[in-house]
Structures are given as C-alpha cells and as structure tokens.
Amino acid sequence: MLELRLVQGSLLKKVLEAIKELVTDANFDCSATGFSLQAMDSSHVALVALLLRSEGFEHYRCDRNLSMGMNLNNVSKMLRCAGNDDIITLKADDGSDTVTFMFESPNQDKIADFEMKLMDIDSEHLGIPEAEYHAIVKMPSAEFARICKDLSSIGDTVVISVTKEGVKFSTRGDIGNANIVCRQNTTVDKPEEATIIEMQEPVSLTFALRYMNSFTKATPLSNTVTISLSSELPVVVEYKVADMGYIRFYLAPKIED
C-alpha cells in the first residue's frame, strides 16, 4: 500500500513540467527515504534525478519499496487537472497496475480522483558517485534561464568557464559570438538574488544548449540554481524543491578531439 499526501500539490505539477521534455517514460521509486526518480534521455547524454523526501509529505505511507513505471506526458495530463492550490495524494495498492491521483481543493469542497495505468519500463540505473567539484556557482534561476535562452539564439553550444573573475557563458554561431560574464555578487537585498562562486580551480567545459534550455523548465521550482562543474565529470544543474528535496540534471560535456 502506498499513500503520499502532498499539501503543496503545485510542487508536483512543477516537477512534472520540469522533466517531461527530457524524459518520456520513467520509473518512480518509493521507499522509506522518499519518492524518487532517476532517468536518462534517449541519447544517454542527460540524466534527471529527483528526490522528494518522505518528511516533506503531510502523510507518507510506503509499506514496501515500490517502482511505478509511468509515461510522463500522461502524468502531466493528469496533474494539469489539479488546481494550483490543491492537495495531491498518490495512492497505489500492492501489485496494482494503476496509480490514483487524488486532488482536494483547499476548502475540501471538491475532491477528484484520476486513475492512471502504470507501465513496465526497463530502465538503466547509473551509479553516481559523490564527487568534489572544481567550481560551484549559485545564481538566480531566472538569470540562468535568460542566459541559456539568449545564447541559444546565437549558437548551439555554451562554454561555461569559471575563473576568479567570475563565471563566463560563451557561444559562437554563424552570425557571430556572445559572452556573458556574471561576477560574484553578494551585496543584494535578498539572498536569492546573489551570485556566489566557490572555486577550487578554474574550469571550462562545453555543453549543448538544447539540454541546458530543457533543464531551465525547472525554473518555477526555485529562485536559485546551483551549477557544479568539474573537468572530469558531467555538470550538475540543481534546483531545490522547496525544503523537501531536489531535481538534479546531469549533462555530459562536449569534448574536442
């Protein structure tokens, strides 16, 4: 028996909007730790890892570990029927091939349940080791989204370089080239407007902008984004999901021969 009640149901709606462009089908895993997902895009270039910790749910019952295969477009269709203020409850019986999404309006005057068919998905699970990163940039998520969008109108790839001067996003294309430098800026009114750069050593990596733009679909989840870079590893672009977890996007770099 599985029963997860999320008072801030809009978080789940935003999570689905953030990942459905990158991944078509995925297994949602439920355990005592929480509700999680790990899935790669079809070309194995990008990976999304989601964790919503059990403590973040108002009610979390998961009698045994359960993996539920879902088509994310279909989940998104179901969740779009929930109001932004609705409480969302996920329910599944042991051995069932369906999951039920229950939507309750805040004043309990409307209760809806939507049952969705589950599917069998063979998914590869990657072991992602804890790693030390050469540079970690924390910046406003809207600013990062704007940079990715702007640069993709010029070129297909972005070079992200972190030095003690700041973080530089560069691209080049047929019509010209562009460089955007963001310097560390902690003298702001609100902490979420700060740009904070922690650098162990300079790093410069090239990534496909198409994927970066896809990651920025998570912008409504968090005012800030954290970009962790190391010359030996895929980049990690992380958005916090309130105080209950995160969405992490991993992207393999492009490398010159």
């Binding site: 194995h44 270039v45 393999a252 492009k254 021969d257």
Partner: peptide, 14 residues
C-alpha cells in the same frame, strides 16, 4: 571536431 560525450563515459551502470 567536437564530440558529445555520454553519461556512460563517466558513470557506471548499477
């Protein structure tokens, strides 16, 4: 020439 790496070049299958 610039090549796109994949995640399996970095991470191992569990």
């Amino acid at each position: 020439e610039i090549f796109q790496q994949t995640l399996t070049d970095y991470f191992t299958n569990k």
